[in-house]
């Protein structure tokens, strides 16, 4: 069953993030994913994340697909105007890349080429609406398209961002104009993951909770700096006292993952380093008598 089918049928999905290479050596990105084949439902291909140049996400998504993985093409508004975004999405569908996750994108000056011209012709809501428009057989200007487009559209949500209620309203707008699944920023708190899941369900989309394994205290502090309320004190304390912080951080995230099976539509692993461990964890979930029914 494809990622799309699973989401639509209410099955629990597991996605993971893949960053295209800074260069052309795509094999070195795809090769390590082997243990996850048939286990992770789809791989999000990032779009020059943190505004640093990498291989374009569409060719990388196509290469992944040809290698037997279901990709989710991430597309941002940072580098492309509405003309480029429409043509990119048409190209994606023609290449068999059907899943897309659409977002505004990080700002240019945060990356390693801060002198670049930022675009932001559209915002995330307008980009999602544009993709829905393509699905209805029309361009943004109303002109008819030749051939069918049937993109499976997703979006993102950061529960730690403000102000209220504008973030929730923006999420609502995204879902109203066509987002079917929502991938969140990393969440380490089960209670919050549950609240976010029910919010997204109530607005009419499927929640996929973001999980980012913390490897060290240093990384936790870095995350805290970016997003002060996102890393709970209990996690920081545990990392401080753990003999092996990396495995503590990993287990912490797996606990959240197990909890998500009870109330969410899926989980999204960002920054997958422990490929073998993740494969084992997915096997464990799928064979567990309490969880197997969810898949």
């Amino acid at each position: 069953m494809t990622f799309r089918d699973k989401v639509l049928k209410g099955k629990f999905v597991i996605t993971a993030e893949v960053a295209p290479p800074r260069g052309t050596e795509w094999e070195s990105v795809v090769e390590p994913l082997k243990p996850l084949k048939g286990k992770v439902d789809a791989f999000n291909v990032t779009d020059c994340q943190r505004s640093m140049v990498r291989m374009a996400p569409l060719p990388m998504a196509k290469l992944l697909k040809d290698s037997g993985y279901d990709p989710v093409l991430q597309l941002t508004c940072r580098d492309r105007n509405r003309i480029a975004l429409q043509s990119e999405l048409l190209g994606a569908y023609a290449l068999g890349v059907e899943n897309v996750c659409l977002m505004t994108g990080d700002f240019t000056t945060l990356g390693d080429q801060p002198d670049a011209k930022p675009v932001f012709d559209l915002d995330s809501v307008q980009l999602i609406e544009l993709a829905s428009r393509l699905n209805s057989g029309k361009l943004l200007n109303g002109k008819e398209l030749k051939g069918k487009v049937d993109l499976f559209i997703g979006a993102v949500y950061n529960p730690f961002a403000g102000p209220e209620p504008l973030q929730v309203w923006k999420l609502e707008k995204k879902i109203k104009v066509g987002a079917r699944f929502i991938q969140t920023q990393p969440i380490y708190d089960v209670k919050l993951a549950k609240e976010v899941s029910s919010l997204i369900y109530s607005l009419g989309a499927v929640p996929i909770i973001g999980l980012l394994p913390i490897k060290s205290l240093k990384m936790a502090n870095f995350m805290k700096k970016l997003n002060p309320t996102s890393v709970p004190d209990s996690l920081v304390k545990g990392l401080e006292t753990a003999e092996d912080p990396a495995s503590y951080g990993w287990e912490f995230v797996l606990d959240v993952a197990r909890a998500c099976l009870e109330f969410s539509g899926g989980i999204h692993f960002m920054l997958v380093g422990k490929v073998r461990e993740l494969a084992d964890f997915i096997d464990y979930l799928k064979n567990h008598r309490d969880y197997s029914v969810k898949f």
Partner: peptide, 16 residues
Amino acid sequence: CPKSLVNGPCGGAIAG
């Protein structure tokens, strides 16, 4: 807003 967003804040709007 550096991104000229008209539909509300982006996900990077943390603690104001």
